[in-house]
Each structure stands twice: as C-alpha cells, then as structure tokens.
Write a protein that binds this DNA or RNA. Structure first.
Lengths: 230, 230
DNA sequence: CCCACTTTGTGCCCGCTTTCACAAGAGCGT
DNA sequence: ACGCTCTTGTGAAAGCGGGCACAAAGTGGG
C-alpha cells in the first residue's frame, strides 16, 4: 500500500464550513476568470448564495486572509481554500458502474479541473468492457484490486445498481480506499474509519415538492447543496 | 395555468426530517416487497442507517402511526410518508439539457416508480433534437413554454452547462414552475416563492477527502445524503 | 385479572450553526 | 496627521437538531 497521504493539517474546521468551501471556491474562480482582484465578503456571499456573516466566519477558520476596508484577495483565497480542501495534490478516482450515470460522471469536466484524476472505469458487464469512455478504456470489475493498487486510487465512486453497491464498497475498502461517493440507492455499511458521502438523485426529487408549498413561516427559496452533514 | 396543486397540509415538519423521509420510504418499500407486515423503529432505523430515537421522532411529526409493543404497520406507514411527500399525486418533470447527465437522469428508473413522470426532454443543440432518449423524443428548448404549459410541468431539472442554467431557470419560473432541481454548478437566483435544490457532483467529491483524515475527535463514518438544508 | 415484556412517543439537555451587532483595523482624501 | 468610510473578524445570543432515557401504552401468557 503506497502512501495514501492523509493530510496532516486541519486543526478543527467545522464540517458545515468545509461543505461550503467548494462553493466559495467556484465563485472565486469565476471572479478570477473575470480578472477581479479583490472581493468583499458581501459580494462573495451574494454570489455563493449565503449570508455574509457566515461567509466571514467560515473564512476566519482558515486564518485572517482578508484586509479590512478592502476585502479578500481573490487569488490568495483560492489558494488557501484549495489547500485546505486538499486540492493542491492529486487524488485518484475510480468509477465503478459505467451505466448512464457512470458515463455522465466520467465525462463531467468538473473533476479534472480540480485536483481529481479519473484513474479508472470499471464495470461488471463484459459487453461494455473495453469500450472507450471519456478517453479511458472500461475495465472489468475483477481488476478492481489491481487497479486500486496500481493507480493508487483513494476515492471510489459507486454508480452501480443498488444490489451490487455493498459488495463493491467492501472490495474498495478491502484494498485501502477510505473515501466513497455513493450514488446507489442503498445505505452502505462501512467501518467508522471510512467516509461515505451519499448522493441520491431520486431522493432529491422527492424532497422537492414538499418544500415549496406556501409555508406559513415563509421558508423562502433555499438552495443548499445538500448534505446536512453528520 | 392549470392547477399546480400546492398541497395544503404540512403544519411544520422540520426540514431535516423531510430530507430523511424518502430514505425511510425506500427501506419500507423493500420490507413490503419481502412481505414484512410490521417493523420496529429499531429495525427500520438500522436499515435506514439512522438512530432509532431520531427515526421515532421523525415519524412522530407525521402523527402517531405506531403501535406500542408492536411497531409500525409497513403499508400504512408507506402511505403516510408518500402522502406527506406529495407522492400520492403525479408530478410532471421536464429535463433540460440532454447531455450525459440529462440522459442518465432520463434513464434513471427511480423516478417513474415514485410519483414522477418525465414529461419532456429539452436541449438547445439541434443536432440531438429528435433523438429518442428513454422513450422520449428530445425537443428543442424553444418549445419550453409550450411543453410546460401543455404537460402541466411543475418540476424542472436543469442539467445544462453552467452558462445556460440561469436563463433556463428564469424561463421555467416565467411559465409557472415552482420547483427546480439544479445540477449545474452555479447558484441560481430565484424569487423566494421558488424552491431550488442543488446537487453538485464535483462539490461532493471535493468535500470527501477533507473529511476522512484521522480527525482527532473521531468523526466516524458519516453517510448523510447531503443538503445541509437552509 | 395481573404481570412481565416490548416498543412507542417525548421531555430534556447538549452541542453545533447561524445570525446579529459591533469594535478594531485599513485605506483615502484633505 | 486627522477624520471619514468601508470592511473584516468575532463575542454573544438565539435556533435547530440529535440522542438519552423514561413514562405511557399495548401485547401475550398464565
């Protein structure tokens, strides 16, 4: 097992904050592309869709990188957030299950641009093994252990049918993967040392109609990215 | 504009609870398929991956549908949860942006089985307009207003590139859609009466590596489905 | 009828988040 | 150098959600 590089840093940044950092990061990158040199917490918060006080408190956990009376230096903040998220190093990702969703994920540009390298695509269906998807050749699931070892994969993305998810997950964990992103509609059973994030497309849809009724308290247009966290 | 049926009920169920109801629902349906007539909070909680006290408290918000000493009647609970989520009526969904992700969504079986009917697929790229995807013919985005009106669409799913998302969203809202599920990596600007849920694939990935480091406090394997909510 | 056992529903407390409000810091024009 | 304006960083308060632990309620056996 090669080094899985478990970033040392991270004193104690609240999980809720970490979940928002990528949103800030994207907003900052958009600003950077436009050539904006600095941005105030008010403006950045508005782009990211959050309260400005919350934004400031979030950023304050990284350190005092703002300048009073001026705002934050866009490029410097991008660097600091990337660093905190561990995006300054590359993470190898394996996608298991190359159906429609797996293909969508493989082709999704958002990954490579961050520090994520899609190292392998795996599927159990031998009729698609060998196909080229997003420039990669689909390999058979039997090669999972070899691939994880050889490519030093540290993140597994499960896009298989529900029935296969748990066993795939077990095999991933068995060869040292500690982070799993699960798109299958099942609750995975994992030891505490492994972090699983779950994304369930149909659940998102089911929640939707229940929230937009004329709530007397006026819930007002939300836009959370999901994950209540713990 | 036909009836958009804004369910009247819903006194004040916590958002965190609503977000978990679909998970319970799925577990219950699996039990029902196996012919299990009743289930205890302990067992159901274990399947759904939550604390049993939390489960009981969640369900208590719907009313007292359990029997002490016995548990919950599976079928009745399915009905009550479906009802609360508004799944007892059909919702028409339009997917805009038929790239890889849009295709994955269109083919995703989980929708039709619940009360969701995929009414239309729309895209701006005329080279794919007319293609058959998941049994539906892709229509041109110009027809958006006609489609929403004609099919009584109440939910829009945005799977377009980031740049197109806001304008598509505006058009959806313009013709009466009040619920939007956004897969594009931008924060949409909407009036408070519209509910937007955002799912961002690359953000989930970015959060992942930051959470599984040997946190001194032992954060232990999480598995939240996302959405910190408001 | 009574008792032992099971399981729900919930009061209570604790810790995490969010939000407000403001003092301290930084730049700028004069 | 001074004062004005802008913006950050943060103490304190309020709100929400999670989980324990227990009383209440229902079942079944004798």
């Amino acid at each position: 097992m090669t080094r899985r590089t478990p970033r040392p840093r991270e004193r104690g940044i609240p999980e809720a904050t970490v979940a928002r950092l990528p949103v800030y990061l994207r907003a900052l990158q958009a600003l950077d592309d436009q050539g904006t040199p600095t941005v105030s917490s008010e403006d950045l918060a508005s782009i990211a869709g959050v309260n400005s006080a919350k934004l400031r408190k979030d950023l304050s956990h990284l350190g005092s990188y703002g300048t009073r009376g001026v705002g934050y230096d866009v490029e410097y903040l991008i660097y600091q957030i990337s660093r905190e998220l561990g995006l300054t190093q590359d993470w190898s990702v394996a996608i298991i299950g190359i159906g429609n969703l797996g293909r969508a994920l493989a082709n999704y540009g958002g990954f490579g641009s961050r520090g994520f390298r899609i190292a392998a695509l795996l599927d159990a269906d031998s009729s698609i093994v060998g196909d080229k998807v997003a420039g990669l050749s689909v390999r058979h699931i039997d090669a999972l252990e070899d691939v994880v070892e050889g490519e030093d994969v540290s993140i597994g993305v499960i896009a298989t049918p529900a029935a296969a998810a748990q066993s795939v997950c077990d095999r991933l964990i068995g060869c040292g993967v500690t982070s799993v992103l699960n798109f299958a509609p099942v609750v995975l059973n994992v030891p505490p040392s492994v972090d699983v994030r779950k994304v369930d497309l149909s659940i998102e849809l089911q929640i939707l109609p229940s929230t937009n009724n004329e709530s007397p308290t006026g819930t007002a247009g939300r836009s959370g990215s999901g994950s209540p966290g713990a």
